[in-house]
Design a protein around this nucleic acid. Structure first.
Lengths: 192, 192
DNA sequence: CATTTTGTTCAAGTTTTTTTGAACAAAGTT
DNA sequence: AACTTTGTTCAAAAAAACTTGAACAAAATG
């Protein structure tokens, strides 16, 4: 019976193929996410997927994403993979359906945290080793004055890296809803 | 005379064309900046230009950048334009030379500030208007329950935007060297 | 004023990233 | 077991971003 309804609605969509699949406000809101994705270096399709989930009151299935966004299954599959990795979407079990359904993560703190952990920290980490390598290379090199300058710049680089690391927890604390040193315990369950 | 020396050094470079133009440590350090550039969505060539300036004790001219990095004049010209816009390099007047010479900005605070002002703020700003447009679009739409949900999500988006805006000054304060609420006046002249 | 130096612009070429869609795998149904 | 549903993978196509180099502009020099 559920299957019949799904079939029916699919057919309906096919018949009224001129019916806009996304409303005006949905299109605009998705556009906001497409731009935001671009800003942080993620492809358009990922912005679209998250955006549509964000607009929709109920969890959406893989097929619904393909259908409403009019993008390929491949893009949706890969996009959802990245979004899951980032913790930006959650699988949502829907009784009576075999399909995976997805809900968007709505906590800004968790979204940012996922992004930082996945895309930022790794580079920062590998950075530490790279700087040590450079340190070694400077040893095997030219005159005293050049070495001194090189080591000086390397020091600047290390301090930048250190400061970036220190910044991250502060950013997370601020996004956590804490009013900047109000000493509220970070409440992971509060979705803001 | 200056011109003669410059000519000479150019010829020397041509003659010893197998001489590595960048030392090992310079190459590695530039690589760090190329990766960092990628992380924030800037092209490789820009990372290379800033990286070489960062490595070098003295100001470098346009031609020296082209020569040592082995990239085209076009790339250097456009790269320097972006870097100037970001405030990541400064023009440095060298008496007796008609060429522009460049020095890297070494203050992390200024670098980050330039990046935020140039690449981030504009999107955030235009964002405000976009959200108002969406607000209007939601008005002209479907049933009561959908509208309520749409407005709810729009509210989430507005709060995210607001929080991002509040975050920026905090980030700047932390990078300014202030020990996080130590109330040191922000000292723009301290280069760290 | 013709020439040289210095740097910019932009169309065309190159490289990288993203998207597509068909083949495939896994798991449920009949 | 054969078939259907659901979703993944990956090679090829398409799109986007970056780089090049030649033509050009502006300003200094002789």
């Amino acid at each position: 019976m559920d299957q019949f309804l799904e079939l029916l609605s699919t057919k309906m969509a096919d018949i009224h193929s001129d019916t806009p699949i996304l409303s005006a406000w949905e299109t605009s809101m998705i556009d906001v996410f497409v731009r935001a994705a671009g800003l942080i270096g993620l492809p358009r399709s990922i912005g679209e997927i998250y955006g549509l989930l964000f607009c929709t009151p109920k969890a959406l299935s893989f097929d619904e994403l393909v259908e409403r966004l009019q993008i390929s299954k491949g893009s949706v599959s890969q996009g959802l993979k990245v979004l899951r990795q980032l913790g930006a979407v959650k699988l949502h079990y829907v009784p009576g359906s075999r399909r995976d359904h997805y809900l968007p993560e709505l906590s800004m703190k968790r979204l940012v945290s996922g992004f930082i952990k996945d895309q930022f920290e790794p580079h920062l980490l590998s950075g530490a080793q790279r700087l040590d390598n450079i340190d070694a290379l400077i040893g095997e090199e030219g005159d005293e004055a050049s070495r001194a300058h090189a080591l000086n710049r390397l020091g600047t680089l290390r301090s930048w890296r250190q400061r970036t690391r220190k910044l991250i927890p502060i950013v997370m604390a601020v996004l956590g809803g804490a009013k900047f040193f109000d000493k509220e315990p970070t409440d992971d369950e509060t979705i803001i």
